[in-house]
Amino acid sequence: MHNYATESDALVPLNRAEDTYRRLKEDLFNFRLLPGDDFSENEIAARMEVSRTPVREALFRLQREGYVSVVPRMGWQVRPLDFEKFDQIYEVRILLEESSLQRLSRKNKVSSIGALMQTWCCPPDLRESNAKAVWMLDEDFHAGLVASGGNPEIWRIHHDVMERLRIIRRLDFTKPERVSATYEEHAAILEQIHRGRIGEAQRLLRSHIDASRLEVRKITLSMLYEARLEKVTPDRREQ
């Protein structure tokens, strides 16, 4: 009698590991696991009601992405947020996006931004208001600019850079005024590209990214303060 797993059986642990990874990442992004927190695989496995195997696979994946680190003889730790490093990564991002705009101009691919203009150059009553949806549209906007430059390797590097910033960047759309500013600034950048004024588009792009960088730092620090206060005094709202 043969003893082997069917294809559907084989998918179960893979799906469980992927689900555990996504849930853990959500905990990190929403500061349910705070920067500097120590934890063990057993604690996570018990809370998520899974075995240690998918937890370990998820943690190694998050370690490769820079979100957690191993503490010898102690377990795991959420890596502290390093805003100096984030600033350095933002600078790399700006260089990649500015370079892509220059390439777009040289290759006469200005027409490739048509889909982006339909999304962002619209009246206020047609704008998306859901924070998560705007975040995803924003990701598509910046990835679309880079893709329009026509260099797949620059796009790949840019994708990796954006992944490293995602833990703080997604917070930029939690305030309505930031959503409005994003629409207006994206539209202004696209208008300059459409008119062939690439230098001005690059200037606006750098200003746009810098403004977002400063805003997400403020929001992140505020959310961390609230999360730590909640952790220390969980019943304060009932008092």
Rank of each mutant, 00 (worst) to 15 (best):
S105V: 02
K107G: 15
K109E: 11
I113V: 15
I113C: 07
I113K: 00
I113N: 00
A115P: 02
L116G: 04
M117Y: 03
M117E: 15
T119P: 00
T119G: 01
T119D: 08
W120T: 02
C121F: 02
C121G: 05
C122W: 01
P123V: 09
P124C: 09
P124V: 11
D125C: 06
D125F: 11
L126P: 01
R127M: 05
R127T: 04
E128I: 11
E128N: 01
E128W: 01
A131L: 02
A133D: 10
V134T: 02
W135E: 10
M136K: 10
M136Q: 14
D138L: 00
E139C: 10
E139S: 09
D140S: 10
F141P: 01
F141N: 00
F141W: 03
H142K: 04
G144Q: 00
L145I: 08
V146W: 01
A147T: 12
A147C: 05
S148F: 01
N151Q: 07
P152D: 03
P152R: 04
R156I: 02
D160L: 11
V161A: 07
V161Y: 04
E163D: 08
E163Q: 13
E163S: 07
I168M: 09
R169L: 13
D172Q: 10
T174R: 13
K175G: 00
P176W: 11
P176F: 10
P176N: 06
E177Y: 05
R178Q: 15
V179K: 01
S180Y: 07
E185W: 05
E185K: 10
A187R: 08
A188E: 15
A188G: 08
L190D: 12
